[in-house]
Amino acid sequence: MRTIYTEKYRWFRHIIMLLLVVVLLPSCEKEEVNNDPILHSFGPSPALRGGELRFIGQNMGDVTAVIFPGISGGTVQVTEIIVVNEREIKVMIPQDSGVGIITLVTTRGEIKTLTPITYSEPILINKVSPMKAKAGDVLTIEGDYLNLIKRVIFFDNVIVEGDSFLEGQTRKKIQLTVPAEAQSGKIIISNGEEIPIEVYSDDEIEIALPWVSETLDLTGKKPGEVIEIMGTDLDLVVSLVMPNEDQIPFEVTENEDGQSILFTLPENMSDGVVVMIPASGVEVAIANIGMALPTNVVAIPAESLRGGDLIKLEGLNMELITNIIFPGINEPV
């Protein structure tokens, strides 16, 4: 009986010890402390570039750098971190930071925000200069948050993309070359997004056009005659168009009196307006043509004519005659 009693209590002791292990093991696990940095939230978002951004979590003092996405690709790293306490840090948002996920670099690895940071900025145009410009001139746009701008749009949707801006685009200024196709009107600056923010200039920009001192009257002029017309900014002309819409060769020259455009009247000239056209496509009238015609024509002899008789025609501009048709005869002579 003693042996049976001892064995019974021996098994009882084993069961008690096993239960103690099961109970105490989770208690030991609960006593372990997690010292890893943990991010709970950040803000504000939308945020203002140049303003403060706060990160709330645990063990935030272990954060050594904050990496923002860049506006035009790449990243922007901030290492100047204000540690408020172990639960909060602050950083200044860089001016060239973009929309996207932020990465916190810690002594134990990296933490990424679950949501992207976005921005709320009032893109402004304060000044555009010069207000009168010519193709090839440098146009300066001043305002705020212009570092976000990816395109400038002139009247009639003439676009200058950001990669064509002159070097030195900043938050306060953009410079670009006025394109040859630009026309007078308000300009638009755009951030180039799928649903873009677009801001118009208050006033219209005047883009120079080729100009002539006076519209010439070419009435009575004949094919082959050379015409010279004085003007300004004639170097902008890309085509010269006759009334019948034919383009003809021309030459722009410069002398002490300024610029002049020269062209030869073609054989197929007709009545109407001669226009010059710059790259913008705006037509500028330079001359009106009233066709020279044969006048004061007299036939000698004019009476008692028979087949085979020789007739002499006299008058003005007779060299312009190309055909003669007699009454009752369909074929020209």
Rank of each mutant, 00 (worst) to 15 (best):
G272I: 03
L236K: 06
L234P: 10
P278T: 10
L265M: 08
I248M: 02
I286M: 08
G231H: 03
S280M: 02
M291R: 13
P249C: 11
V275N: 11
S270L: 11
M242P: 04
G290K: 01
V273D: 14
L262T: 15
V282I: 15
V273I: 15
A287I: 03
N268H: 05
I261C: 04
V237L: 07
N268S: 14
G290M: 04
E283Y: 07
P266I: 07
V241A: 08
I248V: 15
N255S: 12
E251S: 11
V274E: 00
L265I: 13
L236H: 07
V284Q: 07
I248H: 02
D246V: 12
L240T: 04
I248W: 04
V252D: 06
V274C: 00
L240M: 05
S239R: 14
S270Q: 13
M269P: 03
S270P: 00
V238Y: 04
V284I: 14
E254M: 09
I289L: 01
V273Y: 09
A287W: 01
M269Q: 15
V274P: 01
S280L: 00
E256Q: 13
Q259T: 09
T264S: 11
E251Q: 12
V238S: 11
D271M: 02
F250G: 01
N288A: 06
V275R: 10
V275I: 14
M291H: 08
I229F: 08
G281N: 05
S239Q: 12
L236V: 10
V238C: 08
G290N: 04
D257L: 13
N288G: 11
A285I: 05
S260M: 10
D271K: 10
V237K: 00
Q247C: 13
V282C: 01
V284D: 06
F250W: 02
T232I: 13
D271V: 05
Q247E: 15
L236S: 07
N244M: 07
A279F: 10
D233N: 15
I248S: 04
L240H: 06
A285Y: 10
P249G: 09
S239H: 07
E283S: 12
M242W: 09
D271L: 03
V282G: 02
S270G: 14
M230Q: 10
P278L: 07
D271Q: 11
E245D: 15
E251R: 10
V274R: 00
N244G: 03
E245V: 13
N255E: 11
N255W: 10
D246Q: 15
F263H: 00
S239G: 09
E256R: 12
E283F: 04
M242K: 01
D233A: 10
E267M: 11
A285R: 11
M230S: 11
S239Y: 02
A279L: 08
I277D: 04
E251F: 09
L234S: 08
A279E: 14
D246I: 12
P243H: 03
F250I: 02
A279G: 04
P243N: 01
I277H: 08
D271R: 09
E245S: 15
D233Y: 12
A287D: 01
N288K: 08
F263P: 01
D246H: 11
Q247W: 00
I261D: 01
G281I: 00
M242I: 09
I286N: 03
T264G: 05
V238M: 13
V241M: 10
L240G: 00
L262C: 05
